[in-house]
């Protein structure tokens, strides 16, 4: 099976701060990959590079075999094939929930408004927010906003869904409702790469867990192995701190 997303030796620096020092990562179709690691380990930067929100300083990112880091590639066309969900939801506050969701399908993918609207309402119904379609985002709780953001990303039928610490800004009681949606999306076969601090969730849902440290993938493998019996001392140290904090 060929990889949907293939990251090869990606390097990214912000000034003197080298965040990614040659990251390799391969994600197959229907696979769920969890990126774990401390703050500043490069999880978010990796996702931003993969979604072309940052330009890589070296290496390649391949989407369905196409080198999307090639400057000759139409970046807008590439982003159309990706779905991104951010930590801070980033819903458009001046648009209603429904308009947030149908924006890309109608404006980018040229679908009719009625068609996009029908699908949006179906998707919103599936996450239990069909009755909020006419509301504006700031009338919604954080968990509701994040679920809408997931639906907004799904509405464009992305090849890969990139989730950037999507529960980090939420109250503990709202985390569950968001993760439930992700679990459902994963169960339907969506290819997902997610940066997360929710180790328990990574353990349940991910096929592969990658531990990033100082800008490289230090260790990766099935969740039972990386989270349960890590090889690298740095991974162990990181996980023991998480266990101390009661997060695993």
């Amino acid at each position: 099976m060929s990889a949907v997303l293939d990251v090869r030796g990606v390097v990214k620096a912000f000034g003197d701060n080298v965040v990614l020092r040659g990251v390799d990562l391969s994600v197959d179709e229907h696979q769920v990959v969890a990126l774990i690691g401390g703050s500043g380990s490069g999880k978010s930067t990796l996702l931003r590079c993969a979604s072309l929100l940052e330009t890589v300083d070296d290496g390649q990112v391949l989407l369905d075999g196409e080198d999307i880091t090639d400057p000759r590639v139409d970046a807008d066309a590439v982003r159309r094939r990706l779905g991104v969900v951010f930590q801070a939801y980033n819903l458009f506050p001046h648009l209603s929930v429904l308009d947030n969701v149908v924006l890309a399908p109608t404006r980018v993918h040229g679908r009719s408004r009625a068609d996009a609207r029908d699908e949006a309402l179906t998707l919103l119904g599936r996450i239990g927010l069909a009755d909020k379609a006419g509301e504006y985002p700031d009338r919604l709780s954080g968990g509701q906003q994040q679920r809408v953001a997931i639906v907004r990303a799904l509405a464009v039928h992305p090849r890969v869904l990139l989730l950037d610490e999507i529960t980090s800004a939420l109250d503990p009681e709202l985390v569950g409702e968001v993760l439930r949606v992700v679990r459902e999306v994963a169960a339907q076969g969506m290819t997902i790469v997610m940066a997360t601090h929710e180790m328990g969730f990574a353990k349940q849902v991910a096929d592969t867990v990658c531990f990033l440290d100082a800008g490289v993938v230090l260790e990766s493998g099935p969740p039972e192995q990386v989270l349960g019996d890590p090889v690298e001392p740095r991974t162990r140290q990181f996980l023991s701190r998480i266990i101390d904090a009661g997060r695993l």
């Binding site: 929100l53 982003r79 458009f92 890309a104 980018v108």
Partner: peptide, 10 residues
Amino acid sequence: QRAAARSLGL
């Protein structure tokens, strides 16, 4: 906001 819009392909 710009990042969110661009990531949708706008």
